[in-house]
Write a protein that binds this DNA or RNA. Structure first.
Lengths: 226, 226
DNA sequence: GTCTATACAGAGATAGAC
DNA sequence: GTCTATCTCTGTATAGAC
């Protein structure tokens, strides 16, 4: 079999299994069985299990980062054309919308974004390094743009608040399930109790991607401008 | 040897090693070697590696949650005495201050809080369940109090924003290192570049716990009240 | 009841035949 | 390039000594 064909089969199988069961609960033997290749194929083509995860993420994140950077550039260019500062809200939208919106894309599994969220904090070394290698060009532009939008905010404080914003976004990705309900596991009980105690609340409906994006943007924008 | 003595030795060794290398990169053989006990001791006393992590976290988090709930009650009681609503800021402070301040406590390792941050999103089943079991009484009171503080905010939106706030806090914990610099790994390069390009910025100094708490509280308060 | 020694199945990784 | 066989190390279970 040709090289790319085998690699693609492995990547597809790994993406699906990682998304379903997580990185550590998925064995190379499951992946290679599903892909219809030999156990040793992963180590031959990718070098290690961690490097495989790295490649699984890279395949999807590369276009995402491209899109994010495009949107950020568009916001900055438009502001420049009008001779104005970019708004914090528009910048944050360019950061958040493609990321959360990614869950509606046709990428592998509905749980892929959750896998990303977990991967950021979890596997050490290779994965984190390559993740931030991806992010770096975006973050550089993002922070520069935020400085333009908030010229009076000290650099240290701006970085800290942007750090908080990243935390919010990562948490959304991690907690995200297919239905789009954040932290369903954690909140469900409390939500139910509240419905008992306080009347007149609307039925808890599944949050649409658009709503989630809007609310997240509003939240971090308020925090950045506090 | 007595029961509690052995258990304590295992818990101490596990806490240190988990904090240093993470849960998955630490083997039971390393833990038991450091504790000076037999490999089988972990399974005898705790049942499994995951249950051990559960106990490691519980030992430190139980007093933390007690403190958090006390502070929250104090804020609510004081507001009631004055016949006022509790302020969002005071509530968020009661949530965040003990949590971040925990890193200055004498608990095991400086990296313990980072371990907590990682554990929330990582090991499945047992650990997450027991973690939220801990949190539940606090969260119930917290959400009730937030409803008092923000009576006009729809319940769905309040929950969503609180969810975002939790994300911010978890991210701070996860990125936290002993020095107190957030996201040093990710930001260091960009920060340095900024120092080159833009002049007049103050030297990046290690952020004190107090500053970090204040800024985090301001950030999420602004987001909640947006 | 505690603890030790040991066995076991499964993991990721690798060398060498084809 | 691919596959088999094998290596080491992991978490877990158990039998038996004290």
């Amino acid at each position: 079999m040709n090289r790319v064909g085998t690699q693609k089969k492995i990547l597809d199988a790994a993406e699906l299994l990682f998304s379903e069961s997580g990185y550590y609960s998925t064995s190379l033997r499951e992946i290679t069985a599903k892909a219809g290749v030999n156990v040793a194929a992963v180590n031959y083509h990718f070098g290690s299990k961690e490097a495989l995860l790295d490649n699984v993420l890279e395949r999807r994140l590369a276009p995402l980062n491209k899109l994010r950077l495009q949107m950020l550039d568009a916001v900055c260019a438009e502001a420049k054309d009008r001779g104005r500062r970019p708004s914090v809200k528009a910048l944050m939208h360019a950061f958040i919308a493609p990321t959360i919106g990614f869950r509606d894309s046709d990428a592998g599994s509905k749980n892929f974004v959750a896998l990303v969220g977990r991967a950021i904090s979890e596997p050490s070394g290779t994965v984190q390094r390559s993740f931030f290698k991806f992010m770096e060009p975006f973050i550089t532009v993002m922070i520069d743009s935020l400085h333009e939008a908030l010229p009076d905010l000290p650099a240290e404080l701006l970085l800290l608040r942007f750090h908080f914003s990243v935390g919010t976004l990562v948490h959304i990705l991690r907690a995200n399930n297919g239905a789009g309900l954040p932290e369903q596991r954690c909140m469900a009980g409390d939500r139910a109790k509240h419905k008992e105690r306080k009347k007149g609340y609307e039925e808890p409906k599944a949050i649409t991607t658009a709503t989630l994006v809007d609310e997240a943007v509003n939240f971090v924008t308020a925090g950045m401008e506090a």
